[in-house]
């Protein structure tokens, strides 16, 4: 294992985060605060409790997940797409590094950043709603697992993308709708039976539901099912990445 390489990539990527600290960290904090002001305070005060939880508190896990998903995909895809675009990827491809080391470096850094952002958002939300976390370890576990899984997905996206448009396309047109329809702002039990069934095909539902369970101890889906789903998505992403780098798809001619 070439740990020096993993460390080099990880530090390089983290340096990028801290260089753009305003854009990287303040933007999600501001966006989340706006959500709380609008959905939590303004609209939320007129909403009834969901599953016995005040609306403003109910949306906290959903909002955290929304940001963690978007940030994980965004960071990891940019991290690997940028060297591809600028040409500096030659160095990565000609260096004595394995797939595992490359993925560990890039995905590790992207996941670290989104976990940090998730925690910052959580802290921000504490200013707006009384926060209680029933299963803190499970909460951290879900957060880490989700950040990792979607950073892997973002890495895949960055390798697949051949233009900036494509890089924006998937998050904007697929991930954002899936997240919004994944129960960020409502319980899927509130949907008519047909839509509830359809929703179960949306993987994001399991993430948000499981994460919410770790806060309030209740959820529309069994938390074990949620964890299984996250792990399953992660395994699929890992397998795809292993195949891509071995075959050289989109990287080596």
């Amino acid at each position: 294992m070439n740990w020096h390489a993993v460390r080099a990539i990880y530090r390089f990527e983290m340096a990028r985060t801290f260089r753009t600290v305003v854009q990287s960290i303040l933007t999600p904090v501001l966006t989340t605060s706006l959500y709380f002001v609008v959905f939590g305070s303004a609209i939320g005060s007129r909403m009834t409790d969901i599953d016995g939880i005040p609306f403003a508190a109910f949306i906290v896990p959903g909002l955290v997940m929304l940001s963690v998903l978007t940030e994980s995909i965004g960071n990891a895809s940019f991290g690997i797409y940028f060297p591809k675009w600028s040409g500096t990827i030659y160095e990565l491809l000609s260096a004595p590094v394995s797939t595992a080391e490359i993925v560990l470096g890039y995905v590790g850094a992207a996941a670290t950043k989104s976990i940090m952002i998730g925690l910052i958002i959580l802290a921000t939300s504490a200013f707006f709603v009384p926060l209680s976390v029933l299963h803190p370890l499970m909460m951290l576990g879900f957060l880490a697992l989700t950040a990792l899984t979607f950073s892997l997905f973002g890495f895949l996206l960055g390798i697949w993308a051949t233009s900036w448009e494509k890089l924006q396309f998937v998050p904007a047109l697929i991930i954002t709708p899936l997240t919004f329809l994944g129960g960020s702002f409502y319980s899927i039990d509130m949907l008519p039976p047909v839509w509830r069934t359809i929703t179960l095909f949306n993987p994001v539902v399991y993430l948000i539901s499981g994460f919410r369970w770790s806060f309030y101890g209740q959820s529309a889906i069994n938390p074990l099912v949620s964890i299984t789903m996250v792990v399953l998505i992660m395994v699929v992403c890992l397998a795809l990445i292993a195949w891509i780098i071995r075959s050289g798809w989109r990287l080596r001619h």
Partner: peptide
Amino acid sequence: LATEAFETVEAAVKFSRGLYG
């Protein structure tokens, strides 16, 4: 010519050394 843009010369050179183990 393909170089990192936002990194300093020294950081980029150190990155290469690490990458090669």
